[in-house]
Amino acid sequence: MSSLYDRLSPVVRNLPPSGIRRFFDLANEMEDVISLGVGEPDFVTPWHVREACFYALERGFTSYTSNYGLPELRKALAQYLQDFDLAYDPMTELVVTVGGSEAIDLALRTLVCPGDEVLIPEPAYVSYNPCARLAGAEPVAVPTHAQDQFRLNIEQLRAHITPRTKVLILCYPNNPTGAIMEIEDLRSVAKVAIEHDLFVISDEIYAELTYGKKHVSIASIPGMKERTILISGMSKAFAMTGWRIGYAAAPAELLSAMVKIHQYTILCAPIMGQMAALEALQNGRQAKEQMVEHYDQRRRLIVNGLREIGLSCHEPQGAFYAFPDIRSTGLTSEQFAEGLLRQNKVAVVPGNVFGEAGEGFIRCSYATSVEQIHRALERIDRFVQSIH
């Protein structure tokens, strides 16, 4: 008799567990670990946002909302997106989701058919590949490189397009590298997308976290809004990870198809979280800007510190991750991360969990205090010196 596991969907059976999770589990078993691994703000959601949730509960806001989300929240999102030169109809071109993660899943399941190929620039956020597989598509890695500041190279992009290619996933500012794409980079990508009739899923969850350069959305480039699904949410810029409020913006025809899946699987995002998100959008700009200033200070500290240790590190211009090159140590990403954790109690994420292009690198989140970053750098220095 076959085991229960053997009777599961082969797609699910063949999905590997998250490589990030293993290191978190190891770290949780140890004391005095400094974590540079967590991909979330270390700030608590601002009080006025939490208070808006309490007030919503006091007033009895505990019901379902429209599948699309609260109309007033969608209007606030549409107004907010105007800061990035984007114009969306709040009633037909915006849906509130349970985090950006649900929006990514909805977008892929809406766009792809079995056998379609999805291009994923790597190193990449760990969920894109498995979500593409769960939707029946074949993920295709497009490597990016440190010498290009981990920007998507157009020649590499063209080289990976086949007659089966249907979707390109973009994540800029990038997790895990901190790379950004500027307007000229995106114009080149847009030209290729239009030429090959590709859809683009643009994950812009870190759009607000840029340093010195304003974020540009590929959806703002002429000819791209009609073929782009923009994904974002409240998690990173507004320190609202646990609230699970994301959103997708797309042409009405695409969005209504996504909502078909959303209404049968989720129905709607929690109303209390939506009310809190509305408060954050309307009155949270100052707190958001203060958080970005703190991240910028930490960014310079960790990058300079890693370089002084002897680890080459490109300058991240977005998100809150440094992605240093550890190949000079002679260790693989896994060996470096595990050794650093076991010997010196600093948790980082090995770059290979973000795809083959990430091998030889580690991801260090600087969404932690300056004091913790100083201590972590001292421990990393001791570990590197012990290798040499």
Rank of each mutant, 00 (worst) to 15 (best):
F24N: 08
P46D: 06
I205E: 12
I218V: 12
E93G: 07
F323Y: 15
G39Y: 08
A193T: 01
S18V: 02
L230R: 11
V216T: 14
E289N: 06
E40L: 14
I380L: 02
I20S: 15
E253S: 12
P130D: 00
D85R: 13
V346K: 00
E195S: 08
F361D: 04
L254D: 08
G39T: 09
Q156R: 13
E253Y: 12
Y128L: 05
N129A: 14
E184C: 08
Q335L: 01
A376I: 07
F24V: 05
E51V: 09
V112P: 00
R7S: 14
A124K: 06
M224C: 10
A78V: 10
K260V: 12
F354I: 04
P139Q: 01
D185C: 09
Q335D: 05
Q335A: 11
P316W: 08
R13S: 04
M291A: 07
P222M: 00
L168M: 04
Q297M: 03
E315S: 02
Q147W: 03
G69S: 09
R74T: 06
E31N: 13
T165G: 03
F320G: 01
R379P: 04
A135M: 02
A107N: 08
E93C: 08
V189H: 04
N28I: 05
I373D: 01
N129G: 07
Q79T: 13
K213I: 15
E29C: 08
H215Q: 09
E338V: 05
G99W: 03
A78P: 07
K191N: 13
L255K: 03
K75Y: 07
F199R: 11
Y80R: 15
E204G: 10
P121H: 05
L26A: 11
I266C: 13
